[in-house]
């Protein structure tokens, strides 16, 4: 089946007790259960349902990304006058207010990064499903990129948490988080889980 680098005998390692045994899974993987003769754990070449799980989590993140952008993430009030702001309205306000650097940072952290993750993960999952052999090295690089930028995706959530904790001047000025930031946090977590569920070896499983 695989025309991988090793063309020798097909062997498989038990994921639990690491017993190496002959790979008799054939094409039945995912349908028939093959168990380890020593510990009884289910044997599999790739994590079963990894693509499916990654895909499901990615879909959930994508769904939640809509309310995260539509609903307000932060409520600011200054001298008793204030209003809710969504992520996009905040970016626009900062951009128009002249703070283009901050606007750019927020844009990258809360729009560019999640969208990149959606696209990359979607691409990886789609190609893995089709077992495409297209640009495999580049796709591996993309996967590493997704893992790396995952650390920085929580920037928005941190900003809202810190600001609402610090800016508490009662009537003068007040900042409160709103429900949108919760959705945004859920989006970030779900995309990270999705990236974790994806087995990068699938990139190399192309036919």
């Amino acid at each position: 089946m695989s025309t991988g680098l090793l063309a020798g005998p097909r062997v498989i390692a038990c994921p639990v007790c690491s017993l190496v045994c002959e790979d008799t899974l054939g094409e039945a993987e995912g349908r028939a259960g093959v168990r380890c003769p020593r510990c009884g754990a289910a044997l599999h070449r790739r994590r079963p349902g990894g693509v499916e799980r990654a895909f499901a989590l990615l879909l959930a993140a994508l769904i939640l990304y809509v309310p995260a952008n539509v609903l307000p993430v932060m409520h600011t009030s200054l001298f008793g006058r204030g209003g809710d702001s969504t992520i996009l309205s905040g970016i626009i306000d900062f951009w128009r207010g002249g703070s283009r650097g901050i606007a750019l940072i927020i844009f990258i952290a809360s729009v560019a990064v999640p969208c990149t993750k959606f696209l990359v993960l979607g691409l990886l999952l789609a190609t893995a499903r089709r077992r495409s052999r297209w640009a495999r090295r580049e796709r591996a690089g993309l996967y590493r990129l997704v893992e790396w930028i995952g650390y920085w995706s929580m920037l928005d959530v941190v900003v809202v948490a810190v600001v609402s904790a610090i800016v508490k001047f009662q009537a003068l000025s007040d900042v409160e988080p709103r429900i949108g930031i919760l959705f945004f946090g859920a989006v970030v977590i779900l995309t990270m889980l999705s990236a974790m569920s994806f087995d990068p070896r699938l990139i190399w499983d192309g036919k």
Binding site: C21, V34, L43, A56, L59, I63
Partner: peptide, 23 residues
């Protein structure tokens, strides 16, 4: 090498799909 034991899978649809459904 020993032969792996063949067993039937019980679940076809993964529970993970509940996550996007709830979302």
């Amino acid at each position: 090498m020993p032969e792996p034991v063949v067993a039937r899978r019980r679940w076809h649809l993964s529970l993970i799909w509940l996550v996007p459904a709830v979302a």
